[in-house]
């Protein structure tokens, strides 16, 4: 009974993932990425990971997708918006994709203990919570450090652009100043 929704979600995910790489338009690619992430969320939901599905929608589509769209909007060169499809090189891209998939698949299957889920197959949100403040409390705190680092990094990078034209905030030039500049 579960295989039908799973298959549907997987199909949507695969199709939109393909469109992400095949779409010549950056904005379209980003929006297809959103659908791919939504499909992934559906997969999580089908597999019983309710919390993960919710977080996937909240963080990846609501957050990361928005970040991607904003990222596209703040780029300077908009004439590069359309990525010409011919330039991709299908064969090379295919080889790289297959190789990447092989490496990932191998890494997952070769890692010991991954198949035994730490919280069991029907982990509820409560179980995650217990694990978070129990066994993994150190990781929980380290995450906050990571978030802090990301915040600081964002601020520093964004501020570096500041001396550019945007520094001019108030442009009111009084008449006298104009006249003085002329003389």
């Amino acid at each position: 009974m579960e295989s039908i929704p799973f298959g549907l979600a997987a199909l949507v995910t695969l199709f939109s993932a393909l469109r992400v790489v095949r779409s010549p338009n950056l904005v379209h690619a980003a929006l297809w990425l959103g659908l791919a992430l939504l499909g992934t969320a559906a997969l999580f939901a089908v597999l019983g990971a309710s919390f993960l599905a919710g977080v996937q929608v909240l963080l990846y589509i609501g957050g990361v997708m928005t970040l991607t769209l904003v990222g596209i909007m703040i780029t300077r060169r908009h004439d590069g918006l359309n990525v010409p499809a011919e330039s991709i090189g299908h064969v090379r891209a295919g080889v790289v994709s297959v190789a990447l998939f092989a490496v990932l698949a191998w890494a997952i299957s070769a890692t010991p203990g991954l198949d035994a889920a730490p919280l069991g197959p029907d982990a509820t949100t409560q179980d995650i919570g217990h694990a978070l403040v129990g066994t993994h409390v150190l990781a929980f705190e380290v995450v906050s450090m990571l978030l802090l680092a990301a915040m600081l990094g964002a601020i520093v990078i964004a501020r570096r652009k500041d001396p550019a034209p945007h520094a001019v905030t108030h442009l009111h030039v009084p008449a006298t100043a104009v006249r003085e500049a002329a003389e």
Partner: peptide, 13 residues
């Protein structure tokens, strides 16, 4: 069971 996440997630979309 994760209704709050649903609300925030779908609303955030």
């Amino acid at each position: 069971d994760v209704g709050v996440l649903w609300v925030l997630g779908i609303g955030g979309l």
